[in-house]
């Protein structure tokens, strides 16, 4: 069973539904014990970075999540804010640290410098840098649906599996098996997004 973590950050219905359509069985997890009994874990989320970390903390999920992620014992998928939370910190809230699985921080799009609208809202392309079971049979340069004002800047370049251009070039898909994370919303990205979810289910 795939545990979709419910920590009050955004609607989980679309994510769960899309995973189920791709053959995965899901349940909503709110407690540390839910993470234990899951085969795989999905961390979705829209909203504010600090607020999200506080919500995870309140549900006593930070340490169990860190344990699972650092040991690599279960496949993990982070979506949108669920990608950003894997890093050390975010410009969105400097007082609250992230899960610190990966070195690097989360930055705001420099809208003045790039002269583009923030949030980035809509369909943008992802260029894959290597092959991976996570993106199997997903055409390179596929469009995915993005909604975000912040993006992660990993220290280790080897984390970058896919990159996207929006004034700056940023890591839109990161991978360190069995950890995967995407900045876009696969559940809102039609065939390409569903394919990625299917690959995660099959992983």
């Amino acid at each position: 069973m795939i545990c979709v973590i419910d920590y009050g950050m955004g609607n989980l219905r679309s994510v769960s539904k899309a995973i189920e359509t791709m053959g995965g069985r899901t349940f909503l997890g709110r407690h540390p014990r839910d993470l234990k009994r899951a085969d795989k874990i999905v961390l979705p989320g829209v909203g504010e970075f600090g607020h999200a970390m506080q919500a995870l903390s309140k549900q006593k999920l930070i340490e169990p999540l860190q344990e699972i992620l650092l040991s690599g014992e279960k496949p993990f998928l982070g979506i949108c804010l669920g990608l950003q939370l894997l890093f050390e910190s975010s410009e969105e809230n400097r007082k609250v640290p992230g899960l610190k699985i990966f070195k690097g921080s989360v930055q705001r799009f420099p809208k003045k410098k790039i002269g583009l609208k923030v949030p980035q809202m809509g369909w943008n392309q992802v260029r894959f840098l290597r092959s991976s079971p996570f993106i199997r049979k997903v055409p390179n340069q596929s469009y995915f649906y993005f909604v975000h004002s912040f993006y992660a800047t990993p220290h280790e370049q080897s984390l970058d599996l896919g990159i996207t251009e929006y004034g700056v070039r940023f890591a839109s898909v990161i991978e360190k098996e069995p950890i995967f994370a995407v900045q876009f919303h696969p559940e809102k990205s039609q065939a390409a997004g569903l394919k990625i979810l299917k690959n995660f289910v099959a992983y």
């Binding site: 219905r13 679309s14 899309a18 909604v147 809102k188 990205s189 039609q190 997004g193 569903l194």
Partner: peptide
Amino acid sequence: AEKVAESIYIP
């Protein structure tokens, strides 16, 4: 909204 959300994969 519930039914639409279950039927399409665009926002």
